[in-house]
Amino acid sequence: MASPAEVRPIESRTVGDLVTTELRRSILTGALPPGQSFSLRELASRLDVSFIPVREALRNLESEGLVVIRPGRSVTIAPIDFDDLHAIYRLRRLLEPDLARRSCTRISDAELTRLERDAADFGDPDRSMDAIYDAHRDFHLALFGSAATAWDVRVLTTLWRAAERYIRIGFGLLDPDPEEHHRRRHAHESLLSVYRRRDPDAAARAVDEHLDHNEKMAGAALGTAAAGLQARETAG
């Protein structure tokens, strides 16, 4: 018989975990739009759950910068703006090039070969936006994995989740262009080519340039989205 002091294995996910996952997905995909406010009653009704797991989920999402909890029983989906975008990428530049510098000399040839196959799939025009982003996150986590500590992964995950809405906007606007799929594939194959050289400085520069491109793409998409919103409001 297990001692009461022992840590017990988790047998299933809690309702709070499931609500957190679904609300996060809805925010990242835009189903719950930036800047819009909801009552806890409304969210609980949509999810067909009680207030308690919704409150738990919202606290988790507030720590990720995805919602703003208001006094009383309401929450606002965090707005998207340029200052947040720049702050996210400033922090990513402090961490990711350094991880690239160290991981490029540790990652195995076999892992690079596997990632080359994954990078080739980025050129598939039939992949959904969810599949693209999931694969993109997994690719970069594997790229840094040989040097990343558990704390690195925690911080990276938080920053990547914060950046995801911006990247999804950018990918979504560019996705209809067949050349974007080719560019996406080439960009990641180029990172792997630099890694193959086992040059720490070159790997750090390549990752920094990759981040710079993604930030500019997301910024341009924000500008386009904002202009479209303003035009609709003017026309209305």
Rank of each mutant, 00 (worst) to 15 (best):
V19K: 04
D109K: 09
R185H: 04
A100Q: 08
L94T: 12
L229D: 10
P4L: 04
V49D: 06
G145C: 04
P125A: 13
A148C: 11
D17Q: 13
P71F: 11
D201A: 15
E56S: 11
A57R: 00
R197I: 00
M217E: 13
D175K: 15
G236F: 06
E215H: 08
L141R: 15
D84M: 03
L174Y: 09
T14K: 14
R198L: 08
R102C: 01
R165A: 04
R168D: 01
L99I: 01
R92C: 06
P178G: 05
H213C: 04
R101S: 07
R198Y: 08
P176H: 09
E11P: 01
A218T: 08
D83C: 06
S128N: 06
A2D: 10
R232Q: 07
S74N: 02
L95H: 12
I77A: 02
S190A: 15
A162W: 05
D212C: 07
R185L: 12
R114I: 03
V67N: 08
D177H: 10
E64W: 07
E189V: 04
S146Q: 13
A2W: 06
H181E: 10
T29F: 09
Y89F: 01
A100T: 10
V54D: 03
A204D: 02
L28V: 11
L95I: 15
D84Y: 04
E42G: 04
A202Y: 02
H210I: 04
D118F: 08
W151I: 09
A87P: 00
Y166P: 03
H140Y: 09
S37D: 03
F139E: 14
I10S: 06
V67D: 13
D175E: 13
I77N: 00
D109E: 13
V75P: 02
S3Y: 06
F144C: 12
D118L: 12
R25E: 14
V7I: 12
M217D: 10
A57E: 03
F51T: 00
I88P: 02
T20I: 02
L28G: 10
L91W: 08
D138H: 09
A131S: 15
P176Q: 10
Y195V: 09
E209C: 07
I167C: 11
R232N: 01
A87M: 00
A202H: 02
H86G: 07
P33T: 11
S50G: 09
T29N: 09
R127G: 10
L94A: 12
R55S: 05
L222P: 04
